[in-house]
Structure formats: C-alpha cells, structure tokens
Simulated scan of single mutants.
Amino acid sequence: MTEHVVELDRVAKRFGAVTALDAVTLGFARGTFTAVMGPSGSGKSTLLQVAAGLDRPTEGTVRLAGTDLGPLSETRLTVLRRDRIGFVFQAFNLLSSLTAEQNVALPLRLAGRRPARREVRAVLAAVGLADRARHRPAELSGGQQQRVAIARAVITRPDVLFADEPTGALDSHTGREVLGLLRSMVDGQGQTVVMVTHDPVAAAHADRVVFLADGRVAGEMAAPTPQAVAERMTGLETTGAGR
C-alpha cells in the first residue's frame, strides 16, 4: 500500500458564501513530486494552505504522516509546521541582514536548537551554494536566493515540502535550475514535494499533476509533458472552469 505523507479526506473550505474547496479527497505519497494546477480561482493556493496546516478546513480531515491536524491546538499546529513541514514561496522571504547560512539556520534556532555549522554548510552545498554561505541576500541572484530558501525549508528534514509558485519570480533558465533541484531532492533524498504552479513546463518536472476547477479535483495526469499539461489547462479554461 502506498504511504501517503499528506491525506485530505472530503475537505471543504468556505469563505462566507464562496466555496474555495469542495469535498476534495487527495493523497500525496512519500518521495513523490506533485504539481497542482488550475484556472485562476480554482482553489490551488487554498488547497496548499489547508494541506500545510496554515488554514483549517471548514469540513473534512487533513492528516500529516497519520496525524489528524483537526484536533491540534494552534500551539501544537505551529510546532508541527515548524518541525515537519517545509515552505517555499514565490517571494524568497529571506532576512536581508542575515547571511545565507544564518538564514538557513533560522528554523533550527527558532526551535531552540543550536545549529551545527557543518549541518548548515552541508545543506547549502546540497543546493549548490557551498561558496555563498557568508553572502547576504543582496549579494545573491534571484535563483541563488531561492536556493537559500529551499535549503532553509529542508534543514529540519520535513516530511513534506510545499512550494507555491517557486519559480514565479525567476527567469526561465534560473527557474529550470530550481525545478531541477527540487526534482533531484525527490529522486536522491526521497523528499516529498507538493508544488502549486501555473506553468506547464514547471509542472512537467513532477511525477503527476492534479488539476483543480471550481474547488474540485478535475483530473490527474501521470508522467506529464508540457504540451499535454497545456492542452488540459486550455480545456479547463475554455469550459469556463474557475472563478
């Protein structure tokens, strides 16, 4: 039986009269790379936020490695997110006054741990920045800053890495490098990655693509190619899916 790191069971999320997610049931298997796509307003970001415990569902159950997030207090949920979930966003969210290695070490310090320099340097080396440890964000390119953000996200060895448009602020060449890095972490380290994207080329780096429309799962695609993903997206958009 496939081990699902993240499971959503009939999850709904409503904001007043607006239903952002409607009875979504999904599983994300350990050591896999999943892209989530859909027209604007289809519920992609809401799905990520609910799956990552950043927001609570209106109905349904979200589990992380078997732990039901519903009964957890805000304090316990915060600790779980800090220790077991990694986040990468379009904005790099690095602290400008800190060096690359200090930014990467920050989650460990927030958890009350004293990070070992060799541990931090090893993670930076894994993302190709062994020679940039003492550089501050202003001294790094956009792609290098995103690599620091990825290193920071995985320093705690999270069960799952959630990425929301991680290449949205990068040029196409740099974006491919970052996607290649995420792919190598899945293949080489067994990392589980769930990525929201609007880009068919980015989605083609994943093992599968989950399509959303109007807050519901509108299909999946295994072994995606950019052309096949683009055609499916065109079909969703021309049928009026999404708000």
Rank of each mutant, 00 (worst) to 15 (best):
A35G: 07
R56N: 05
D171W: 02
V36K: 00
T61E: 13
D159E: 12
A130V: 08
R114T: 15
F92C: 02
V154S: 11
V193N: 09
R56L: 10
E7G: 10
D9P: 14
P137R: 08
V229M: 01
V6F: 02
R76W: 13
D55F: 10
V196Y: 06
E237A: 15
G240R: 06
E165Y: 02
R134W: 13
V193C: 04
D214M: 00
A202N: 06
A130F: 08
P57G: 02
V127Q: 06
A218F: 02
R132Y: 03
A51N: 07
P39C: 05
V36W: 05
R113L: 12
V88M: 01
P224F: 09
T156R: 15
G70C: 12
V210F: 08
L48K: 10
P166D: 04
T234N: 14
H198A: 05
S40C: 08
L236A: 05
V62T: 07
A105V: 02
G16A: 11
V120G: 06
G143F: 00
G86W: 08
P226L: 00
G188R: 00
A29H: 05
V88F: 07
G66R: 00
G235I: 03
F211K: 00
T2P: 15
T61K: 11
V120T: 05
R121T: 13
V186E: 08
D207N: 06
T46F: 01
A126G: 13
A116K: 15
S96P: 15
L161V: 14
T19R: 13
A163G: 04
V6D: 00
P226K: 05
V148S: 10
T156G: 13
Q191I: 02
D83M: 13
G53P: 01
S42V: 07
H4T: 12
N103G: 03
L161Q: 12
A122R: 12
P137V: 09
D187I: 09
K44V: 10
